[in-house]
Amino acid sequence: MIMRILGEGQYDIADEHLEQLNYLDSALQKAADAGQETAFASALSALLDAVRRLGTPLPDERITPSDLVLPDESTSLPQVRELLSDEGLIPG
């Protein structure tokens, strides 16, 4: 799966890491639903850090459609709420 972090780039994520990313996405969803700004910022940071750590960065010159686009760390809680579905940012 190709994930893009807005303003940063794309990462190729192996299927074996999706469960871990979904766990982090669930924490983000819970913090957003509860309106907990500090927990939300921490959860978003943890999710993006995991994508960076687990994914393989794609070269900037490679143009590939993203399967999923994630907000950057400066995105506010209200902005992320607009992006969340019933399954969070990461479906599955």
Rank of each mutant, 00 (worst) to 15 (best):
M1R: 04
M1Y: 03
I2G: 04
I2C: 09
I2N: 05
M3P: 01
M3I: 11
I5G: 04
I5N: 07
I5H: 06
I5Q: 07
L6D: 11
G7P: 00
E8K: 12
E8A: 08
G9P: 02
G9K: 01
Q10G: 01
Q10F: 02
Y11R: 03
Y11E: 02
D12V: 07
D12L: 15
D12Q: 15
I13L: 04
I13A: 01
D15Q: 15
D15E: 15
E16M: 13
H17F: 12
L18K: 09
L18M: 13
L18Q: 10
E19V: 08
E19R: 11
E19N: 09
L21H: 00
Y23P: 00
Y23N: 03
L24Q: 01
L24E: 00
S26Q: 05
S26H: 03
A27S: 05
L28P: 00
L28G: 01
Q29W: 04
K30H: 02
A31T: 10
A31P: 03
A31I: 12
A31S: 11
A32Y: 01
A32M: 02
A34R: 15
A34M: 12
G35H: 08
G35I: 10
E37S: 10
T38K: 08
T38H: 08
T38A: 11
T38Y: 07
T38G: 03
A39F: 04
A39P: 00
A39R: 02
F40E: 03
A41R: 11
S42D: 15
L47Q: 05
D49K: 09
D49I: 06
A50L: 02
A50K: 01
A50I: 01
A50C: 02
A50Q: 01
V51H: 00
V51Y: 00
R52D: 05
R52L: 04
R53K: 09
L54I: 12
L54H: 06
G55T: 02
L58G: 06
L58R: 10
P59K: 14
P59H: 12
D60G: 04
E61R: 11
R62K: 13
R62G: 03
R62T: 13
R62D: 13
I63P: 02
T64K: 14
T64N: 08
P65T: 08
P65Y: 05
P65R: 13
S66R: 05
D67C: 07
D67T: 06
L68Y: 05
P71V: 12
D72G: 08
D72E: 15
E73Y: 08
E73P: 03
S74A: 15
S74Q: 15
T75Y: 08
T75G: 04
T75K: 12
S76I: 14
L77M: 11
L77R: 12
L77A: 14
L77Q: 13
P78K: 15
P78V: 13
P78G: 12
V80D: 05
E82F: 07
E82Y: 07
E82V: 08
L83I: 04
L84E: 01
L84C: 03
L84K: 03
D86S: 13
D86Y: 14
D86E: 15
G88H: 04
L89K: 02
I90K: 00
I90Q: 00
P91K: 12
P91I: 07
G92F: 09
